[in-house]
Nucleic acid binder design. Structure first.
Length: 805
RNA sequence: GCGCCUGUGGUGGAAUUGGCAGACACGCAAGAUUUAGGAUCUUGUGCUCCGGCGUGCAGGUUCGACCCCUGUCAGGCGCACCA
C-alpha cells in the first residue's frame, strides 16, 4: 500500500507550478481569453480567514477547468492594502503602516500559496505601491478635469472612533460600517465625486450584465430612482413653493403642505415676520437639529410637527389654500425638502393628518373602506374622482395628463429623483492615497500636473488621527507647503487622503498589464482582457466597491480609456462560513477556524474539497470539523486507486457512468455547484471500488475531473502513473451525449398516484410497452382488479400512473 | 411596516424545475481486520403500531406537489418616513 504524504506532495507541486509558470496568463495570445476575478483581500493582521478560500477555491476551479479547455486564463491576486485597521495597528504598536502592510502581505501570500490557488503571481498588485497608486491619483485628476470631482462644504457622516468622514454607503444602521461606532453629523469641506451623474446608467446597465438578482435589486434600491413631477405651489407669503411627488395624479387631494425643518423658506419667513408662532417653530427646529438623521428616520414613527401660523399654500390645480407645517418626516436632502400632503392616498400623510385633524379628501376611488378609516395607496385599479379634468381616468393616465397640464401651464415639470448621493471622497487619515490637489490663494484648487505623479505619501513618525477633523498630514508643514502649479506662488497641498475604496475601484484593470509605467494598462491589454468574465465577491460590497467600481469604469469608458462600459460581465456571491456553533466567527466567541491549521492537519486538497462540498455556494454554512473527514477519506480513497490500477480503456460497463459524470462535473462547475460535482465524483469512485479495479484510461479521466478541486493529489498520481508531462498540459475530458443514456431504467408504477411497483425496463420502451409491463406486475394487477381504468399516463423513462375508479 | 429569500432524516445537504423524496457526505449500528484503541473495509440506517405516514403548519389546484396557488408560523437578508 502506497502512502500519500500530502504535506510533501503539496509543497512539491506548489514549487513546480511556481517555477514552470504554468498559470501565467499571456498577453497577446491567439487563444480565447477568460478572466476570472475574486476580490483581492485586505491583508489584515489576523491572517487569512476560512471565508477567503471559499471564494478563491470556487473560481480557482473555474480557472483550472477553463485552462484545460484551452482558454488563456487570467486569474490574478493582489492586495487592497490601504486602510484603517493597518493604520490603527501601526499606531498602537508604533510600527509604520508600510512595514505592517509588508508583513501582513507576506503572511497572506504564503497562506494563499499553501492552498494551491492557480493565481498568476507575476501580476500581483498592491494598492499602496506608488507605481500603483500613481494611476489611482491619475484617475482622480481625470475626474477633476471633467468636473466630476469637486470640493464642497456640507454636512457629512463623521465616525467618532475612526475620526474620519464616511461615505453614505459606509454608514449602516446609523453606525460605522467598519467599526460599529456612532456616526454624527459634521459640517466639513470635502472632496466629492459626482456618482449621481451616472445614476441613470448605473441602473439601466444592470440589464446588460449577468449578476445574481439580489445584487441587482440591492443596487437599484440604493440608487433609488423614482419618476414623478415637481409641482409649484404659490404661498400667501409670496414665494413659490416647489414640491416633488410621484403621485401628481392626487394633486386635487392635497389638504396641507409640509416643509423639512431645515427648509430655507423658514429662515426667510421667520425673518420677515410672516410666521405668527415663531417661538414654537424655532423650538421645533432646535429639537429636530439635535437628533441625528438616524434618529429622525429610524425611531420617529410617530409624526410630530408644527403648523406655520399665518402662511398658506395655494394648490395650483384648484386654487384652494391649505396650511403649511414643518415636520422632521420630510428630509431636506431628498427632492425639494418639501412635500404636498395627500392623506387619503399616502400612509405617512394619513398618519400626519389624523394626528393634526386635517381633512382627508378621496381622489382615487376603489377602496373597500372609507379613506377616513384607512388610506388607499393602490395604483393599479383606482379611478380618479373629485379631480375635475382627471375624473374617470386610471392612475397611470392621470399621472400623464396632470404632468402635461402642469408643464403647459408652467406650474410644474416631470422629474426623476434618486436616493443616491454624491460620493464623499476625502478621509482624514494617513494610510491612504494623497489627493493630488493644491490650494492656491490666487488660483483656488489646482490639480497637480500628471508628470508629478505619483504624489507619494510622506514618511512620518506620527500619523494619529486628530479630534479636530484634520488629516495627520496637515502637521507636515514641509510637505504641505508647496508652490502653485498654475501661478508658481505659495500654495498648500490637500492633506486629506482617498478612501479605501479608491484603489479597489480599478484594480482589475491593472492586472491586465501590471508593470506598465506609461498608462494604467495598455490599450491592447484592455481590449483583450476586459470585461472580467466572472467576478465573485461578498454581498457586503454590493453598494460599496461594486457600485463605485462600476462608476469609475463607466467614467474611464467615457474618456476612452477602457473599451467596455461595464467592468464585470458576471457577478456571483459566496455565502459566509460560520463557526461550528452557527455563529459568525469571531475572536471573542472563540469559534475562529484558522485555515493554516486545517491545511496542516488535513492538507490543502481536503480544505478545498470541504469548502466546496459544505453546501450551496451562495448560502451561509457552519463549519463542521467532522465533515472534513469525509473529504479527507475521499482524497485517500482516490489515491488508493493507484493500487487497483490495470491496463485498458474505459470498461463497457463503466462507460455510461463516466460520460454522465463528465457531463455533470463540467456543467456543475459552470453553474457554481461544486458540491454536487464532488458528490458525482464520490459516487463514481464508489462504483469503481465496487468493481474492484480501475483501468488506466478510467483513472486518467477521473484524475482530470478531480484536478480543479484537488490539484495536488491529482498531479501526484498523474505523475506516478506516467500519464504525461503534467496535468496543465493535458485536456479536459469530453463526453458523448449518446453514451450518457442507460440501456435500462427503473420506472415507478403508480395506481391513483400511489407507488405500487418499480420495474426495470428498456430505456427506449414505448408507452404501450410500459403500460403492458406495468399491468403484468402482480401488485399493480391486484390494485386495479375490478376497477374501471379512467386514465393511463406514461412519463418517458420515469413512471406509469394508472388512474382507476 | 414594505420587499425578497429560506424552512427537507440525528447532522450538512441532494432532487434533471410538476413525475420513484432523502443523491453524496457526516454520525450511528453490526460484522471483518487489529493484542487493544485508532485507521481501513463490508453491510445497514427517514418514521412506523408494518396498514401506512412523511419536505415548518393549514387549505387548494392536479392523475401526480419539496416544486404551482391562498393563508399562516419561524429564521435570514435588503429597504426603511425617499413624498
Amino acid at each position: 500500500m502506497r502512502e500519500y504524504n500530502f504535506a510533501e506532495a503539496e509543497k512539491k507541486w506548489q514549487e513546480i507550478w511556481g517555477e514552470t509558470g504554468v498559470f501565467h496568463a499571456e498577453n497577446g495570445s491567439d487563444k480565447p481569453k477568460y478572466y476570472c476575478l475574486v476580490e483581492f483581500p485586505y491583508p489584515s493582521g489576523n491572517g487569512l480567514h476560512v471565508g477567503h478560500p471559499r471564494s478563491y477555491t470556487a473560481l480557482d476551479i473555474v480557472a483550472r477547468k477553463k485552462r484545460l479547455q484551452g482558454y488563456n486564463v487570467l486569474y490574478p491576486m493582489g492586495w487592497d492594502a490601504f486602510g484603517l485597521p493597518t493604520e490603527n495597528f501601526a499606531i498602537k504598536n508604533h510600527i509604520h503602516p508600510e512595514l505592517v502592510t509588508k508583513k501582513n502581505v507576506a503572511r497572506f501570500k504564503s497562506q494563499l500559496q499553501s492552498i494551491g490557488f492557480s493565481f498568476d503571481w507575476s501580476r500581483e498588485v498592491n494598492t499602496t505601491d506608488p507605481g500603483y497608486y500613481k494611476w489611482t491619483q491619475w484617475i482622480f485628476l481625470q475626474l477633476y478635469k471633467k468636473g466630476l470631482a469637486y470640493k464642497k462644504e456640507m454636512p457629512v457622516n463623521w465616525c467618532t472612533s475612526c475620526k474620519c468622514v464616511l461615505a453614505n454607503e459606509e454608514v449602516v444602521d446609523g453606525v460605522c460600517e467598519r467599526c460599529g461606532s456612532q456616526v454624527i453629523r459634521k459640517v466639513k469641506s470635502q472632496w466629492m465625486l459626482k456618482i449621481t451623474e451616472y445614476a441613470d446608467r448605473l441602473v439601466d446597465d444592470l440589464d446588460s450584465v449577468d449578476y445574481i438578482e439580489r445584487v441587482k435589486t440591492q443596487q437599484r434600491n440604493w440608487i433609488g430612482r423614482s419618476y414623478g413631477a415637481e409641482v409649484d405651489f404659490s404661498t400667501s407669503a409670496g414665494d413659490k413653493l416647489t414640491v416633488y411627488t410621484t403621485r401628481a395624479d392626487t394633486l386635487f387631494g392635497v389638504t396641507y403642505m409640509v416643509l423639512s425643518p431645515e427648509h430655507a423658506y423658514i429662515d426667510k419667513w421667520l425673518a420677515s415676520g410672516a410666521i405668527g408662532n415663531a417661538g414654537d417653530v424655532a423650538a421645533y427646529r432646535a429639537e429636530a437639529a439635535k437628533k441625528s438623521d438616524f434618529e429622525r428616520t429610524e425611531l420617529n414613527k410617530d409624526k410630530t410637527g408644527v403648523r406655520l401660523d399665518g402662511v398658506t399654500a395655494i394648490n395650483p390645480a384648484n386654487g384652494v389654500a391649505v396650511p403649511i407645517f414643518i415636520s422632521d418626516y420630510v428630509l431636506t436632502s431628498y427632492g425639494t425638502g418639501a412635500v404636498m400632503g395627500v392623506p387619503a392616498h399616502d400612509s405617512r400623510d394619513w398618519d400626519f393628518a389624523k394626528k393634526f385633524g386635517l381633512d382627508i379628501i378621496e381622489v382615487v376611488s376603489g377602496s373597500d373602506v372609507p379613506v377616513t378609516e384607512k388610506c388607499y395607496t393602490d395604483v393599479a385599479d383606482g379611478i380618479l374622482v373629485n379631480s375635475d379634468f382627471l375624473n374617470g381616468l386610471n392612475v397611470a393616465d392621470a399621472k400623464e395628463k396632470i404632468a402635461s397640464w402642469l408643464s403647459e401651464k408652467g406650474l410644474g415639470r416631470r422629474k426623476t429623483n434618486f436616493k443616491l448621493r454624491d460620493w464623499v471622497f476625502s478621509r482624514q487619515r494617513y494610510w491612504g492615497e494623497p489627493i493630488p490637489m493644491v490650494r492656491c490663494e490666487k488660483c483656488g484648487w489646482v490639480p497637480l500636473d500628471e508628470s508629478e505623479l505619483p504624489l507619494k505619501l510622506p514618511m512620518v513618525d506620527s500619523y494619529e488621527p486628530t479630534d479636530n477633523g484634520e488629516s495627520p498630514l496637515a502637521k507636515l508643514t514641509d510637505w504641505v507647503n508647496t508652490t502653485c502649479p498654475c501661478c508658481g506662488g505659495a500654495a498648500q497641498r490637500e492633506t486629506d487622503t482617498m478612501p479605501q475604496w479608491a484603489g479597489s475601484s480599478w484594480y482589475f484593470l491593472r492586472y491586465c498589464d501590471p508593470h506598465n509605467s506609461d498608462a494604467l494598462a495598455s490599450k491592447e491589454a484592455l481590449e483583450y482582457w476586459t470585461p472580467v468574465d466572472w467576478y465573485n465577491g461578498g454581498m457586503e460590497h454590493t453598494t460599496l466597491h461594486l457600485l463605485y467600481s462600476r462608476f469609475w469604469h463607466k467614467f474611464l469608458y467615457d474618456i476612452g480609456v477602457v473599451p467596455t462600459s461595464e467592468p464585470y460581465a458576471k457577478r456571483t456571491s459566496h455565502g459566509m462560513i460560520l463557526g461550528e456553533d452557527g455563529e459568525k466567527m469571531s475572536k471573542s466567541r472563540g469559534n475562529v477556524v484558522n485555515p493554516d491549521d486545517v491545511v496542516a492537519q488535513y492538507g490543502a486538497d481536503t480544505l478545498r474539497l470541504y469548502e466546496m462540498f459544505i453546501g450551496d455556494f451562495e448560502k451561509t454554512a457552519p463549519w463542521s470539523t467532522s465533515s472534513i473527514k469525509g473529504c479527507k477519506r475521499f482524497t485517500e480513497r482516490y489515491w488508493a486507486l493507484g493500487d487497483m490500477l490495470c491496463d485498458g480503456g474505459v470498461r463497457p460497463e463503466m462507460e455510461g457512468k463516466f460520460h454522465r459524470t463528465i457531463k455533470k462535473v463540467t456543467s456543475d462547475i459552470d453553474s457554481l455547484k461544486a458540491n454536487t460535482a464532488i458528490a458525482a465524483l464520490m459516487s463514481l469512485l464508489n462504483d469503481i471500488y465496487a468493481s474492484g479495479k480501475v483501468t488506466r484510461e478510467e483513472l486518467k479521466i477521473f484524475t482530470l475531473l478531480l484536478n480543479p478541486f484537488a490539484p495536488h493529489v491529482t498531479e501526484e498520481l498523474y505523475e506516478e502513473c506516467g500519464f504525461g508531462k503534467g496535468i496543465s498540459y493535458d485536456k479536459w475530458p469530453e463526453y458523448d451525449e449518446s453514451k450518457c443514456a442507460e440501456s435500462t431504467v427503473e420506472i415507478a408504477v403508480q395506481v391513483n398516484g400511489k407507488i405500487k411497483a418499480r420495474l426495470d425496463v428498456a430505456a427506449d420502451i414505448d408507452e404501450a410497452g410500459a403500460l403492458a409491463a406495468a399491468k403484468a406486475d402482480g401488485a399493480v394487477a391486484a390494485a386495479i382488479e375490478g376497477k374501471t381504468i379512467v386514465k393511463e399516463l406514461y412519463v418517458k423513462g420515469r413512471l406509469v400512473n394508472i388512474v382507476v375508479r
